Amino acid sequence: MKYRSAFDIIGPVMIGPSSSHTAGAARIGRVARTLFNRQPKKAVISLYGSFAKTYKGHGTDVAIVGGLLDFDTFDERIPTSLKLAEEAGIEVVFSIEETITEHPNTVRINLYDDDGDLEVVGISIGGGTIEIIELNSFKLKLSGEHPAILVVHNDQFGVISAVTQILAIHQINIGHMEVSRKEKGKMALMIIEVDQKIDRQILNVIEKIPNVTQIIRMVD
């Protein structure tokens, strides 16, 4: 496994016994909350591999729900997150899955409310570091550690170059970018991680590009 820094090995400041099972789980939950862009009414949390086997002992359950409540890894409210979620009116359902996944620390989170739903698959790869590997059936790779935008668009010529040109005009440096699509000519997803936060005004310009249907902004 390749680590970017010593902090990936030491792990983050956190509540809980395990950087992979607690801090990483909390980060996955919080990224899911950010992508949903609001507090859900219901969360179905499907646990795989070692997450499924040790989730209660390692606090994976309270960590994920804490993330869904927008708590950081060091938030002292994490141990009581299940109760706090109930008080906030969030229905939480845990599902223990036997399917063998590529990574042992895998969770699928489905969020619901009256305005829509979201499905996120994340993995905790050690030291509190995570990757979001699937979003609404789109395959992707998102760390959640850097400012990023997710651009949903029709798979048409010129959309990608139009988006990157706007970022270049505003001197926004791209650190990582990839495009995922389910079918040629249909819906596609652009994932762009950048070195600085992107102002709302810039996103407004991107939203006006033909064939762009939605933008989700993530900040570090």
Rank of each mutant, 00 (worst) to 15 (best):
Y3A: 15
Y3M: 07
R4Q: 13
S5I: 07
S5L: 00
F7D: 04
P12Q: 01
P12K: 01
G16K: 08
G16C: 07
P17N: 12
S19M: 07
S20N: 09
S20T: 15
H21G: 03
T22V: 05
V31P: 01
A32K: 02
T34P: 01
K41A: 14
S46N: 04
Y48W: 11
S50R: 12
A52F: 05
K56G: 04
T60W: 03
V65A: 05
L68P: 08
F71M: 15
E76N: 14
E76Y: 12
K83Y: 13
E86R: 12
V92L: 03
I96Q: 08
E98V: 00
T99D: 15
T99W: 09
H103S: 11
N105G: 03
V107M: 08
R108Y: 04
N110R: 12
L111M: 09
D115F: 14
G116F: 07
D117E: 15
E119W: 00
E119G: 14
V120Q: 02
V121Y: 03
S124E: 05
G126D: 09
I132Y: 07
E134V: 05
E134S: 13
L135K: 02
K141D: 13
S143D: 08
E145M: 06
P147S: 12
A148V: 00
V151F: 06
Q156W: 01
G158F: 00
Q165N: 11
I166Y: 10
I166E: 06
H170A: 01
H170S: 12
H170T: 06
N173V: 09
I174L: 14
I174V: 15
E183G: 04
A188P: 03
L189N: 04
M190E: 07
I191D: 07
I192H: 01
V194G: 01
V194R: 02
K197C: 07
K197R: 10
I198T: 11
Q201R: 13
Q201L: 06
L203Y: 11
N204I: 10
N204T: 09
N204Q: 07
V205F: 02
V205P: 02
I206A: 08
E207G: 03
E207C: 01
K208R: 15
P210L: 10
N211T: 05
T213G: 00
Q214F: 02
I215N: 03
R217P: 05
